[in-house]
Amino acid sequence: MAVPLTAYLVVAALLFAIGVYAVIAQRSAVMILMGIEVLLNAIGLNLIAFWRFVNPGDYSAQIFAIIIITVGAVEMGIGLAIMLLLYRNRSSVQVDDYAELRG
């Protein structure tokens, strides 16, 4: 392996930072969902990089990565259903429009 572990981890860390930015800065719920998907992506990359360099004999980490991918897919599904519901009721998925509960 010519490319060291740190290089992969740095890519994952930068992905994570971009995901955090997207989750904070975006105001459309769908875009926030996409930011969360980037976060999950960073987790997967981190896991697989650690797996390859730290403990390649045990494939458990790949199962964890599969669980992460599953979680991402399920979140996408239910998130889009939630947004479909919101859009049908209020014609908007901007999170700023949902600020009635206060106190």
């Binding site: 995901g19 989750v23 719920a29 926030i32 969902l33 969360i36 976060l39 999950l40 987790i43 979680v71 979140e75 239910i78 998130g79 939630i82 519901l85 919101l86 009721n89 209020r90 999170v95 949902y98 600020a99 009635e100 509960l101």
Partner: peptide, 16 residues
């Protein structure tokens, strides 16, 4: 509706 949107986004981000 508002409750579920907030719950979903915060829960998903916290889990990630």
């Amino acid at each position: 509706n508002e409750a579920v949107l907030k719950y979903f986004i915060y829960a998903a981000a916290a889990l990630a």
